[in-house]
């Protein structure tokens, strides 16, 4: 499978999706002008990955900030991984949050209320 490796900017996140090395990560800031355009290739990639997912997937979200438009796409991503779980594979969401950012922890907890995937919360400092 192709590797997705997108370098972040001041309004789009870093994205690494690599099935072979088992790296799945979205980090940085997500407030793109056109959320759909930015995330479409990522959602397509995950659809393809879901057809033959690894037995164990660890997906890292290490976001500093995301806007509400991005928050819906993040839910879409999580729902795709929920299907992978339903198909008998193991998925863990590593949800990283900065010590000064309680809102980010809360955001993770809200997602974990909605989707049926185990979440690990990881605190980080500067």
């Amino acid at each position: 499978m192709d590797v997705i490796n997108i370098q972040g900017t001041d309004d789009t996140p870093n994205v690494i999706l690599d099935k072979a090395s088992g790296q799945f990560e979205i980090s940085g800031r997500s407030l793109p002008e056109d959320v759909n355009m930015f995330y479409e290739p990522i959602l397509d990639w995950i659809d393809q990955y879901a057809e033959d997912a690894n037995d164990h997937t660890e997906f890292n979200f290490k976001l500093e900030y995301f806007n509400t438009a991005s928050s819906k796409v993040i839910l879409d991503i999580l729902l795709k991984f929920e299907e992978i779980v339903e198909n008998g594979k193991e998925v863990v969401i590593k949800w990283h949050y900065h010590e000064d950012e309680e809102d980010m922890l809360e955001a993770g907890e809200e997602y974990s209320d909605i989707v049926d995937i185990p979440f690990d919360y990881v605190l980080y400092t500067d």
Binding site: N67, T68, A69, S71, V73, I114
Partner: peptide, 24 residues
């Protein structure tokens, strides 16, 4: 928090991208 969760699940991204959730 529960309104936010309800909205995020129910709403699909509008053509303009977003809306609804911003004020919450």
């Amino acid at each position: 928090s529960s309104l936010y969760k309800q909205q995020i699940v129910e709403s699909t991204i509008s053509e303009k991208g977003g809306a609804g959730l911003g004020l919450i």
